[in-house]
Design a protein around this nucleic acid. Sequence first.
DNA 1: ACATTAAGTGATT
DNA 2: AATCACTTAATGT
Length: 220
Amino acid sequence: MLTMIEGKRVLKEKLDDYYSEIFEKELIEEIIEVGGLRNISNGELLINIGDELTHIPLITRGAIKLIIEEENHDEIVLCYLEKGSTCAISFVNCIHRSKSIFRAIAVRDSEAILIPVKKLDEWLVKYKTFRYFIIDSYHFRLIEAIKSVKSLAFKNLDERLIEYLMDKVKLMKTNILNITHQEIATDMHTSRTIISRLLKDLENEGKIKLKIKKIIIKKM
DNA sequence: ACATTAAGTGATT
DNA sequence: AATCACTTAATGT
């Protein structure tokens, strides 16, 4: 029982740190009431496609990527979940269906507060801040989606590669990326050789430094 | 020392 | 921009 109370106290601290700005006091209290803290290590599969969605994560540390899979087994990154932000897809996915349409994988060592899905309906009605949180994150996602369509439509591969690297640096919170050329190529749905060439160009321009399985981003 | 995986490169479409 | 075919470099056993 003591550990339980201790757990709730930790939960409160986490929420005060990141979510007290956006959620009203009563909602925070309810989250503490029904939520549970979960550690997720880097690379861990949190949710798979088709899994029963019983809980929704509020990220307090690290980053989680959500991906959907195409028929041809190609993967598309939907979004990244980070502290304070969320991908409304994960919430709204639960409103009308219980099975997940996405896969969630930690890309850093992460930590999340898990909220039972059945609270969603109730909270959406009860708490204005919760509604805004969901709507805001949808808005944010839409802007992101428009950005990536624009990027695909109007930007060359070399510009998209720079964007990719910058995003990665921001996401991983380090300018030393442990990633292979092949992984980048797969993410960008292109071939490894051309990524290698473009990276080489960037290195010659002094913007990055290439090591094996490692890219150091300098000035951009 | 050897096999495996990652990266670099020229040529072709 | 993609694919092929090949080389070279790095890494694990």
